[in-house]
């Protein structure tokens, strides 16, 4: 069961602005889905290795050889705020810092 606080916390992590109505609905809908998927937690999975890949591939690397880059004008043409050859954004507050 997902309470309102959890919904808001998750929405914050996902940077999703939700309306009051969406917060309500999200809590109900997600809880219903979670109640269903919760059943897998009853399975006995002792000693079962997790599978994050269906393919048995490993050790794929590329040679350290340069390849042509994109034309700056092309990439900036798609930018919402091209500034001085770069991508303009609102300056992050110190609280946003995570680098």
């Amino acid at each position: 069961m997902l309470d309102r606080a959890q919904v808001l916390h998750v929405a914050r992590l996902a940077r999703l602005g939700l309306t009051e109505e969406e917060v309500e609905r999200m809590g109900v809908e997600l809880s219903k889905v979670l109640d269903h998927v919760d059943r897998i937690r009853e399975l006995d999975l002792q000693g079962v290795a997790p599978t994050s890949h269906a393919v048995e591939v490993a050790g794929v690397v590329r040679a350290d050889e340069p390849e042509p880059c994109l034309d700056r004008d092309v990439i900036l043409a798609a930018a919402p705020e091209p500034v001085d050859g770069g991508f303009g954004v609102p300056s992050p507050g110190p609280a946003d810092d995570d680098s």
């Binding site: 770069g86 991508f87 609102p90």
Partner: peptide, 9 residues
């Protein structure tokens, strides 16, 4: 009226 930064990749 808004403080901007520019990203260089």
């Amino acid at each position: 009226g808004s403080d901007r930064s520019v990203v260089d990749f």
